[in-house]
Simulated scan of single mutants.
Amino acid sequence: MSEPTFPPLLQGHPVQGGEDPFERAQAMAALGCDAGTVVYNIQADRLRAAIVFAPEVPLRDAMAMLPLCAVGFQNALGALAPPEVAVHLDWGGLICVNGAACGQFRVAAASASPAEIPDWLVVGWEVALMRTVDAPGETPDVTALYDEGCADVSPVHLIESWSRHTLTWLNRWEEDGNAPLHGEWMGLLRGVGETVEHGGTGGVFLGTDERFGMLIRNDTGTHLQPMSALLGRET
């Protein structure tokens, strides 16, 4: 299998075996690797990748890199998959294909303080290519790309496409701020208008504020779950 080719400003770093690119990317970032380093692991049953950022804004604003990378992934898979394949995102990082869980985004940063500019921020994701245990139909809320008509989607091409779409959105974000990204992301979010629970707060998911924080309304009012609450957490 050929290695992915990345656009200018991004550098690929493959890892092998069972090594987690998200963990490796954090270690490399802590040691001072270049921003734009993309660590990835292509396995038979799953694809994992992570990208290193060097924010120039406080964490509360830098957390926009999570929805930015997620929108980049949706755009990439949407361009490569058959047109009938629906790709949506969950506020907590879940990747859904045709309504079932197929992958997950994660985020980590050097600092958890919303007001501080972190030395680094890493966004990682993984997506299931094929099932290794359950047969299709046994777990209808969980799926894999190859079960959803995406057997012709090359993992190499998916990483390449994701990196290009993510870089495009990064350039747009730097020029135009959150508004265009927010509009795109809101159109892809699952669960808006439904009852949810995050961080111990339950209620109706109203959407997100201008910094992508989750707005939940219940009998006591409208509550904000900032996106920084997702640091180091899988949902």
Rank of each mutant, 00 (worst) to 15 (best):
E197A: 13
A25R: 13
Q104T: 02
L230E: 05
A179W: 03
R60G: 00
F53R: 13
T222D: 11
L31D: 14
A108T: 07
I117D: 02
S228V: 14
G32F: 09
G93H: 00
A110T: 03
D219F: 02
V85M: 08
G202P: 01
V38M: 04
W125G: 01
T37K: 00
D147F: 00
F22K: 01
M65S: 08
A128Q: 09
L59C: 10
W91Y: 05
H157P: 00
A229K: 08
G203T: 15
M63G: 01
R48M: 12
P4E: 06
G232K: 07
D219I: 08
G232L: 04
E174G: 02
S228I: 08
G183Y: 08
V52D: 02
Y146K: 04
V97E: 06
R164A: 13
E116Y: 14
E56L: 09
S111P: 09
G232N: 10
V97S: 02
W169S: 10
H165Q: 15
L77P: 01
Q43P: 14
M214S: 02
D152M: 08
P55G: 08
V123P: 08
A144F: 13
A50I: 05
W125S: 07
P14V: 05
A76Y: 12
P4W: 01
G207F: 13
E210F: 13
P136H: 14
A108I: 01
D219R: 11
A135M: 13
L231V: 09
L89I: 00
L158M: 03
V156T: 12
A27H: 12
G193A: 12
V97Q: 04
R46F: 05
A108E: 02
D61Y: 01
S163R: 04
L230K: 05
M28S: 08
L189N: 13
A25L: 06
L206H: 01
M227K: 12
T222A: 06
G12H: 09
A81H: 04
A86L: 00
V133Q: 15
V107Y: 00
L170C: 08
V192S: 09
E174P: 00
P58V: 05
V85I: 15
I216E: 03
W185T: 09
M214A: 14
A62G: 03
T139D: 12
P4V: 06
A44N: 11
L80E: 05
G93C: 03
T37C: 01
I216S: 03
A229T: 08
F205N: 03
G72F: 08
P155R: 13
R48G: 13
P7H: 05
G72P: 08
